[in-house]
Design a protein around this nucleic acid. Structure first.
Length: 427
RNA sequence: GCGGACGUAGCUCAGUUGGUUAGAGCGCCGGGUUGUGGUCCCGGAGGCCGUGGGUUCAAGACCCAUCGUUCGCCCCA
């Protein structure tokens, strides 16, 4: 049996051409995050298991984590998400941090699930969190940032949609319809969460079982409303509805009008306390959420410190890359290397000063020291994706005139050392 | 964890109702003479047909198991 060369199930190897894409995506994320005044942090990939208990989502913790006992008999878990970690960190310095606190990170997280299109076991996600802003301005900033990210990649707003809802609003509605039983409410939430994936009749049947007196038709009608403004009087004055309406006005000021009110938007994590949102890809082949988040005012307080109002969201790299590919937004990315030196004859030693001088000027230079046939050397240089090849032989070292070849076009020019530097620097 | 599809050369795949030495294209290596690739021509290497068992005179083809890939469900980025 040969050793397998495949990466672990649901995880990816990043060969240089893949890593280039990741770097491009992350660079853009960092630029946007820092443009809004966010500072980067990081943390260990392993946390004590109890950090996740009764915080994120029961199913994730019980069935979708990589959990094990370490050699010191501690129960630990590879992080399935970053929010509990960042809350832990903020709580740890609750008194000494300056608020509003703006932090971001691009961690990898692991979930033990069956891989599928746009969904793997290991993925990276940008996590943006704003601590210490309780007003709608916080929610507004989050969504504005999410929108800026997609704009930064060159996306049009008709490629994606921002969906809004409020946990408090939906809880209020469900309490009216379902009653106070938390289990019942949870069951209905789950059902609503899956509404889009069900046949309508099937949904109504299931809903009828959970809601007495035929009121399931009324509830279904409510859920179908196109905008929060159309809600019945008893809900339209709910504080969260007022906030949602204000939020949409603020987003309108930013030109963000691809916003959809969606009472069926639930989101899986239990810690959300009010407004939640999701960025959804409208491309039919990537019918998934690209980013998601919301307000979670209770998490930091769980660590025994004074609570901090918090909003946050995450963008996943797998689904983001799929978005960029499907909408043809990924630029052609080349290796960082500027030039490959092809040595002609036994000049490795003599060429050293010139090669060193190129590097000193900030040019990225790879030398082919194999002494193989020139055409083979050229072929490999071209295959590596580097744009230029520079030939150095006795002739060149003698005359001080070098041939620089553009491996894309095949064009070659005779240049002095200074001209070589100038040509490579402009790239 | 549940369901569907698929595992033949590095890659994409073809292999007739089971029948002898398993094929193509691309890629790779070498050559078409001495310091120039991507075109063309010639040659070559490379497969225990995912793995294990079973049926059969005979299995890459059929059956079972297992592992892997993939799509969907659950959950979520």
């Amino acid at each position: 049996m040969n050793l397998s060369t495949q990466p672990y199930k649901g995880a990816r190897d990043f060969y240089p051409e893949d890593k280039r894409i990741q770097k491009y995506m992350f660079d853009t994320l960092r630029t946007v995050a820092e443009g809004y005044g966010y500072q980067e942090y990081d943390a260990p990939i392993i946390e004590p298991t109890e950090l996740y208990l009764s915080k994120s989502s029961d199913e994730i913790v019980s069935e979708q984590t990589y959990s094990f006992t370490d050699r010191g008999d501690r129960n630990v878990t590879i992080r399935p998400e970053m929010t509990p970690t960042v809350s832990r960190m903020v709580a740890g310095r609750r008194q000494e941090l300056a608020y509003p606190l703006r932090w971001y990170s691009i961690p990898n997280v692991w979930r033990y699930e069956r891989p599928q299109a746009g969904r793997l076991r290991e993925h990276w996600q940008l996590n943006m969190d704003l601590f210490g802003v309780s007003g709608i301005e916080g929610d507004h900033e989050m969504i504005q940032i999410a929108d800026t990210i997609f704009q930064a990649y060159g996306a049009d707003r008709d490629m994606y949609e921002i969906r809004l809802n409020s946990r408090q609003l939906i809880n209020e509605i469900l309490n009216d319809y379902v009653g106070q039983s938390a289990d019942q409410v949870l069951a209905v939430i789950r059902l609503i969460d899956h509404k889009a994936k069900m046949v309508h009749e099937e949904f109504m049947e299931a809903l009828e079982k959970l809601i007495p007196d035929g009121r399931h038709h009324d509830l279904d009608k409510l859920l179908h409303l196109k905008s929060f403004e159309e809600l019945p009087d008893r809900y339209v004055h709910h504080p969260s509805v007022k906030q949602l309406i204000e939020l949409k006005e603020l987003l309108g000021e930013n030109g963000i009008t691809n916003v959809a009110d969606d009472l069926t938007l639930m989101r899986g994590f239990d810690y959300y306390t009010d407004i939640v949102f999701e960025v959804f890809d409208k491309h039919p082949e990537n019918n998934r959420s690209l980013a998601g988040g919301g307000r979670y005012d209770g998490l930091v307080g769980l660590f025994g410190v004074e609570p901090v109002p918090t909003v946050g969201f995450a963008v996943g790299d797998v689904t983001l890359q799929r978005f960029l590919e499907l909408h043809e937004l990924l630029p052609e990315l080349k290796p960082e290397t500027d030039v490959v030196i092809i040595l002609i004859g036994d000049v490795y030693k003599k060429a050293q000063p010139f090669i060193a001088s190129l590097r000193k000027k900030g040019i990225s230079v790879a030398v082919d020291p194999t002494g193989r046939k020139m055409d083979t050397a050229i072929k490999h240089a071209a295959k590596s994706g580097v744009r230029y090849a520079l030939f150095i032989g006795e002739q060149e070292l003698g005359s001080g005139q070098y041939k620089l070849r553009d491996l894309g076009t095949g064009q070659e020019s005779d240049l002095s050392q200074e001209q070589v530097v100038a040509a490579l620097k402009t790239e």
